[in-house]
Amino acid sequence: MTDRRAELSRNLASVRRRIDDAAAQAGRTPDEVTLIVVTKTYPASDVALLAQLGVTDVGENRHPEAARKREDAGEGAAGLRWHFVGGLQTNKAGAVTRYADVVHSVDRPRLVDALAKGAVQAGREVEVLVQVNLEGRDDDPVGRAGADPGEVLALAERIDSSDGLLLGGVMAVAPLGADPDPAFARLAEISASVAASYPGATTISAGMSGDLEAAVRHGATHVRIGRSVLGERPALG
């Protein structure tokens, strides 16, 4: 455990330096960027260690793994803010609202409605982000999850008018194998259009281990980092 804590401490320091440097180069301050450590497939003991090391936000992308991990982390992770960052089936939305503080992957009206119903039943207010597809679907019929850019404002309106939900802003993943700068610049434009109608919705969740600098350069307020903090992911059984 001592060795693992030291490893996480070193990795966190390295990632925080990267965020600091990227913010400085963009004329921003590091405290404008929140680090979300994505702990999927890692044990609850890592979550507790991260909390000891000053991490305030952790991310998960699978239910029910996320629910089990939050429970298993117990008092060692008290006070952490839990982000659900993966694709979410409508029939699991209610369960996710019982433990997630923020859901990043809202991309369709039915999911908005399911989350709102679950949040109300749980007696909670859940922050949600509209996930934007920055790849398009013409050349890739499968594509990544996310709403088309033209659908974002309608989803934002639906979220804003739903009991139990708080519209936080937008999220996206840069296209695989492509320069992330144009994608994150486009996300910044979409964010600005959302914030023009909903001034409190200023979150831009963008950037992972390989492209956090580009995300910060284009205004990311939250970066989702897994591998660079936790190491290579364990093989799934």
Rank of each mutant, 00 (worst) to 15 (best):
R233H: 10
R186N: 06
P43H: 13
S193E: 15
V55D: 10
V223D: 10
A188H: 08
R5T: 14
R124Q: 12
I159N: 03
P109L: 15
A93T: 04
W82H: 07
E127H: 00
H83M: 11
F84I: 00
H83I: 01
V103P: 08
A156I: 01
E71F: 01
T221F: 13
A147F: 07
P43G: 05
G150C: 01
A215L: 06
E75S: 15
P180Y: 05
R233L: 11
D211V: 01
A6V: 07
I19G: 09
G54T: 03
V223Y: 05
P199D: 13
D20P: 11
D72I: 00
M171I: 07
V15L: 02
D160L: 03
K69S: 05
A93S: 07
D20I: 03
S161R: 13
P30A: 07
F184D: 00
V128G: 12
S193C: 02
R227I: 00
D3K: 05
I204V: 15
G143P: 09
M1S: 14
V126D: 03
E71K: 11
A119D: 04
K117V: 08
V47A: 02
A154R: 14
K92A: 08
E213F: 05
V58P: 02
D179L: 01
D140Q: 12
A192Y: 05
A100T: 06
I159V: 15
A214T: 07
A235L: 14
S197D: 15
S162M: 00
T221G: 13
E75C: 01
E127A: 10
E232L: 12
R81T: 15
S205Y: 08
T34P: 02
V15S: 07
G87E: 11
P149Y: 07
G123Q: 08
Q131Y: 02
A13Q: 07
L35S: 12
A178N: 06
P175R: 04
M1D: 12
P109W: 01
A67S: 13
L153E: 15
A188R: 07
S162G: 05
S45F: 00
I36K: 08
D46L: 06
D140R: 14
L167S: 11
A196N: 12
L115Q: 14
Y99G: 08
D160M: 03
D140A: 15
V128E: 13
A196H: 11
E60N: 02
A172K: 04
A24E: 15
L35R: 08
E71L: 10
G54P: 05
L167A: 10
N133V: 02
G231S: 11
N133C: 09
A185C: 06
S161A: 15
L8H: 12
D148F: 01
R124W: 11
D72A: 15
R137W: 10
